[in-house]
Amino acid sequence: MSTETLDLDRAPATAPRRVRSVARRLLSQELRLVSRDPFTLIFTVGFPILCVLTLGGVFGTEPAHGFPINPSHYYIASYFTVMIGAVGFVMLPTHIASYRERGVLRRFTAAGFARWSFLVAESWLGLISIAIAGAVLLAVAAPVYGVPLVHDPIRAGAGILVGSIAFVAIGVLLGTLLPSARAAQAVGLLLYFPSFLLGVGGPPTSVMPPTLRAIAENQPLALANQAIRDPWLGLGDGTTPLLIVAAIAIAATVLALRRGRL
């Protein structure tokens, strides 16, 4: 190591370099890091795809067993929401909490990274992860079961967008609340699996007892699922769940911003 010519003159000899904003630098770095994380890839992409392929194989393509339409299409649309839940309940909280635990957030703060830059980067990370995972899901399902026709693209698109924003905000909020990666993983999985099984990736709600059905149709991830799946498959317009999910998105975003300390 040589320090005889430390290049630290106070004024740069040349004009300031053009660099991307902190949020964009953080986002591109975060995308690289997530792409190297096998747990995240398996959990957010591999697991839902494996479930869709398995359930499609089990229930076939004919409406039966309480399914209002082709079960494989029912699950393809539903598992889009499962991916949103995986990102919001597990990936983002664990990721952000591990950064706090390891002092990465302190380092970002001390380096002068604005709080909002990190929140924006993490939010885009969540949204891009959902988009990529969803695209991979459709690409894998298409040759096997075919991609179900989108009956109401505008409402289905709105459902995907609002649902994604809501659960990304929930993920960021959980990440700012939970003290360690282990705590975030425990709480995240505790929220994720019941949400995943009840009204989203599990059996259709029509086969459930009334109490369980009421829960399964009104828990947040199921509402997001209805806002996406119903207009996608023509099972309904999904307006009411869309509005409720939008309210959740606003509340979670406000809380995440207020709690968004590094």
Binding site: D37, R102, R107, A110, A111
Partner: peptide, 16 residues
């Protein structure tokens, strides 16, 4: 902070 360079105790970077 933008004018300070910090070498902090108990801080890290992501493993990967």
């Amino acid at each position: 902070r933008s004018q300070i360079g910090s070498q902090l105790q108990d801080s890290g970077l992501p493993d990967r």
